[in-house]
Nucleic acid binder design. Structure first.
Length: 569
DNA sequence: GCCGTTTTCGGCCCGACTGTTTTCAGTCG
């Protein structure tokens, strides 16, 4: 799978060209990179089919460059560009408030190529001599570097959620605040967020700014203006707030929910229909007359579109689909009738089977599936054949004490050779079999794909657990050809897991969408190791929605009888 | 460098805030 490499090289080329003041080409390269990013399959497959140039934003020149990357793993043009501009743009570009123009000056005047050079120059106060750089800039950069070193790049959705709630509550309490909404990637339900964006309607913006910038959690005020302020919370999370007029609220929401790519498409569509769209509203192009903007729905309607849910706004076809009135009817929290993949004290969970089942019942679920570890991962206290018998007896007892369906099952390790450590006949005695990769995770893509496919082909597996095994901010995904996995899973009627654990979120929304396109079906799981993990199923719902899932695509939304029938292998 | 129902040449989304500047460039979203 060379998609990531292609994306990285195209983006890096855009950075270098931008630094060289080359007009428009950077946009072209970034668009091309985005196209590859949105692919649901290996770009190499598309190339082999000769369909590379059919992709949007991939023309003759970039097409040839992608071909070279696919064939050789690198790109001569990029290597030469790098020689022209020997700067670590990736590293420097991550520093807040340091963009291409300043990076260019730093290199030309002080030969600064990387973070280390910059730190040294800052210590020696060399930047102060440069035109356009002052004491504030020096401080800003020092702070930015400090931030990079001490904070994770993005916050988990679940980490950000309590702050969203807190800030919303605080603002809503103010008599001069008429409306508060959160926008940004958080509103789109992305698994991680870079910052938080709030929109407020108020007749007294300055009071809002005062309350916002003096919240108890604020560590730094990054900007404070009449209608817009940014703060950094003590945990490092940046929060932006804008005050807008009632008349602009819908257009402002639309703009700040994004994604940027969705907005660009929407604005282009507006232009094509004789309008111009900004955060202030939809205007007639010629007369600049305000048309609509109070609500998002009005704007979408005026542009001839169905209303598009925030989770879909990633410019992966939602606008064209909305034009045809064919957007999916997305699942919601209340469609989830039960949850798969839960652990108890029989392996590495914190609560007993009964406590977990009881909690599930309290949450209103119609079923819970227990899938304690089975295999050789000693740290997880896995079941073995002997303990499995006791485990099943215990589940039988729990069934009599609670008023919901309790599925028996295991989460079994997929061994290095693609076998499972329990026979198919024994597995068939269980209600729900989840198989996951837990060890030997560094295998090359071909081997890893063959390993997982072999398990899927040869055992009565119901669900493939956390398919990529990635941990957000911590661990890269397995080297896996997901398209192949999707195809094999579909053929064997195996459901792909949407793991709701906040640090996993695996599969994520875009991959779910890719699987759906191939015809896969999905099962949402909590991967709960504690009764307090069970309510976290809502994060998985976000991924399912981002993956365009309807009730028919998600096992958890089906009738119990139908679930039982399809689990029988 | 890409793209096209105003097209094969000329356009490519748009505005707020900051700092250093004295009218605006850079950065961000």
């Amino acid at each position: 799978m060379k998609n990531d490499l292609v994306i990285k090289i195209l983006n890096n080329i855009a950075d270098i060209l931008e630094l060289q003041d080359v007009p428009f080409k950077p946009i072209a390269y970034r668009k091309a990179a985005q196209t590859i990013e949105s692919l649901s399959e290996d770009v190499e497959e598309i190339y082999i089919r000769g369909e590379l140039l059919n992709l949007p934003s991939i023309g003759e020149h970039i097409g040839r460059k992608i071909e070279e990357i696919i064939k050789t793993g690198k790109l001569q043009y990029y290597e030469e560009l790098k020689k022209e501009v020997p700067i670590d743009l990736e590293e420097l570009g991550r520093i807040p408030f340091l963009g291409p123009k300043k990076i260019k000056i730093l290199y030309q005047e002080l030969k600064i190529k990387n973070l280390k050079d910059l730190e040294k120059a800052l210590q020696e106060h060399k930047l102060l001599r440069l035109k356009g750089f002052g004491e504030e800039t020096e401080k800003t950069l020092l702070k930015g570097i400090e931030f990079l070193k001490t904070n994770p790049q993005r916050f988990l959705y679940a980490q950000a959620l309590p702050y969203v709630t807190k800030i919303q509550e605080l603002l809503r309490k103010q008599s001069f605040v008429h409306k508060v909404e959160v926008a940004g990637s958080f509103r789109r339900g992305k698994e991680t967020v870079g910052d938080l964006d709030f929109l407020v309607i108020s007749s007294e913006p300055s009071k809002v700014m005062q309350v916002f910038t003096t919240m108890p959690d604020v560590k730094d005020i990054l900007a404070k203006g009449e209608t817009k302020s940014s703060v950094r919370l003590s945990n490092g999370l940046q929060v932006d707030l804008r005050v807008v007029a009632d008349k602009e609220f819908g257009s402002a929401m639309n703009y700040f929910i994004g994604s940027k790519e969705h907005n660009v498409e929407l604005r282009k569509l507006a232009l094509s229909k004789g309008y111009t769209l900004s955060e202030y509203g939809l205007f007639k192009l010629k007369s600049k007359k305000w048309v609509v903007g109070r609500t998002e729905n009005e704007i979408y309607q005026k542009l001839g579109l169905q209303s598009i849910e925030p989770e879909l706004r990633e410019n992966t076809g939602e606008i064209a689909t909305a034009q045809k009135n064919k957007l999916p009817k997305l699942i919601t929290n209340k469609d989830i009738k039960g949850i798969f993949h839960n652990h108890s004290t029989w392996s590495d969970g914190h609560n007993s089977l009964f406590e977990m089942a009881q909690k599930a019942e309290q949450l209103g679920f119609k079923f819970i599936s227990f899938n304690d570890h089975y295999g050789s991962m000693a740290i997880a206290n896995p079941l073995n054949e002997k303990r499995l018998v006791q485990y099943l007896k215990e589940i039988e007892k729990v069934r009599k004490k609670v008023n919901l369906r309790v599925f028996s099952g295991v989460e079994i390790d997929i061994m290095k050779d693609g076998t499972l450590p329990l026979s198919s006949s024994k597995l068939k005695e269980l209600d729900v079999v989840i198989a996951s990769v837990h060890m030997a995770t560094k295998m090359p893509e071909m081997e890893m794909t063959a390993r997982v496919c072999s398990a899927l082909e040869n055992y009565p597996i119901n669900i493939l657990g956390h398919p990529t095994d990635r941990l957000l901010n911590e661990r890269e995904p397995l080297a896996l050809n997901l398209d192949k996995i999707f195809e094999v899973a579909k053929r064997n009627k195996i459901f792909m897991e949407i793991n709701s654990s906040p640090g996993r979120m695996d599969l994520d929304g875009l991959k779910v969408k890719a699987g759906l396109k191939v015809g896969c079906q999905f099962a949402l799981s909590t991967d709960g190791h504690d009764i307090n993990h069970l309510p976290a199923y809502v994060y998985g719902v976000l991924s399912a929605r981002r993956g365009w899932l309807e009730k028919k695509d998600l096992l958890n939304c089906w009738d119990l009888q139908k679930i039982e029938k399809v689990m029988k292998k």
